[in-house]
Every structure is written in structure tokens, then in C-alpha cells.
Design a protein around this nucleic acid. Structure first.
Length: 199
DNA sequence: CATGGGATTGACT
DNA sequence: GTCAATCCCATGC
């Protein structure tokens, strides 16, 4: 593998906020379905919005594992949310994947979601796991060896995409941290859109 | 051991 | 704009 193609892997070693920015534009795949990451958020055990803030528990154990592991958990009793564990083993840090631009397996994603429009398939953290067929059974699985794969940006993306930075959404604590990263101009980003996303 | 709340979504007023 | 669905786990009694 060339050093260019390994950039998304080196991101896993970075501080989580840098990793979250670097992972925007990379790809996530599961089976025949894949998409380009359009939105991420960073979470770190040093701040109270992160599940790992409470320390090592049965729930948070995955967050403290080695970089490149998937942390999948159930949200609001209904949805599954996918995170990429980053930083050194023993540190509770992860990048929440909040949105994808659908790439492959779109028919299956439409079927799983019960929606037709591309912007309704993966424009939210619970939507994209439903579209890709990701459940709790994949918690603690490796994103480097599958079944879920983290890959480099698609070849047609020659330039690194412009990224809009904003505060995280859907949380009640540490709301002031600007740890949300969105592809500028992308309508696949989850709502509410950050200021200046389009334009 | 009982309970409250959450990194959400979709339907409805 | 509001609100319910639904379940695991962390917390507190």
C-alpha cells in the first residue's frame, strides 16, 4: 500500500479532533454498500459529552481499545451509531460517523431505509447504520480487516475537500467545543446544517 | 433493584 | 415547532 493510500490509517493515530477532520472524505463500506464520509464529530474521555468520560465500564470498554476498532452502540433504544476508535489503546477517544454520501449499493440502501432520495439514505448517524446494515454485533470489530471497512478517499477525489467546522449537535454537555466537521456544500450532511455549509 | 436519560429519527400540528 | 418510540446502562437508594 502506498503512503498516499495509508493517510486514512495514519489519521487513526492523531489526536481525535485532527482524526475527525482527516476522516472526512474517506470511505466506509459494509458488504456491497459504501459511502464517502460527509460529516464527523470528535469525542474524547476528557470531556463530558463522551461516553468514556465516566471511565472504563462495560459500555465504554470498546472506546479504550486500539485505534481502528468500531464502537457501535444503541441510541435512544432504537438506532445504532458508528464510531471509529482512535488514539492509543487506553485512551477513550472516537470519531462519530454522522453522515455519508452514498457511493455503492444504493439500491440496497434504499430498500433498507424505505426511502428513495439519495440525501435521505445516510444523512444522519442512525440513518447510515441502517442503510449499511450495521448493528451491535459489529461493536469492537476491526475497521481495517472488516466486515466494516474504513478506506481512503475515492480515486476521483483528487483534492482534499473543504471542511466546515462547527459545534457538535444532539448533546447537552460540552456543547461549545467546535468538534463537528462537514464537507462544505454537501447536502448529505445531517440537519441542522452548520452555518455556511452551502455557499 | 428501580429509574432516568440519551452522540436520533420520523410523523404530526 | 412538538413529541413518542424503545432499551441499555450508570447512578442512586
Amino acid at each position: 500500500m502506498s503512503s498516499e493510500a495509508a493517510r486514512h490509517l495514519r489519521a487513526l493515530e492523531l489526536p481525535v479532533v485532527d482524526a475527525a477532520r482527516e476522516l472526512v472524505g474517506c470511505t466506509i463500506s459494509h458488504g456491497p454498500c459504501s459511502g464517502v464520509i460527509a460529516e464527523t464529530e470528535a469525542y474524547h474521555d476528557s470531556e463530558p459529552a463522551c461516553h468514556a468520560f465516566v471511565g472504563l465500564t462495560a459500555r465504554t470498554a470498546t472506546l479504550f481499545e486500539a485505534p481502528g476498532i468500531a464502537y457501535v452502540y444503541r441510541s435512544y433504544g432504537i438506532h445504532f451509531l458508528l464510531n471509529v476508535v482512535v488514539e492509543a489503546e487506553g485512551v477513550g477517544a472516537a470519531v462519530l460517523i454522522r453522515a455519508l454520501a452514498p457511493l455503492e449499493g444504493i439500491g440496497l440502501m434504499q430498500e433498507r431505509r424505505g426511502r428513495e432520495r439519495l440525501t435521505d439514505l445516510c444523512s444522519g448517524p442512525g440513518k447510515l447504520t441502517q442503510a449499511l446494515g450495521i448493528g451491535l454485533d459489529l461493536n469492537a470489530s476491526s475497521l481495517l480487516s472488516g466486515p466494516i471497512r474504513l478506506g481512503p478517499p475515492p480515486p476521483e477525489a483528487s483534492e482534499p475537500c473543504a471542511v466546515v467546522v462547527a459545534t457538535r449537535i444532539g448533546i447537552t454537555r460540552a456543547v461549545e467545543l467546535p468538534w463537528r466537521f462537514c464537507v462544505a456544500g454537501s447536502r448529505h450532511v445531517s440537519k441542522p446544517w452548520p452555518p455556511g455549509l452551502l455557499r
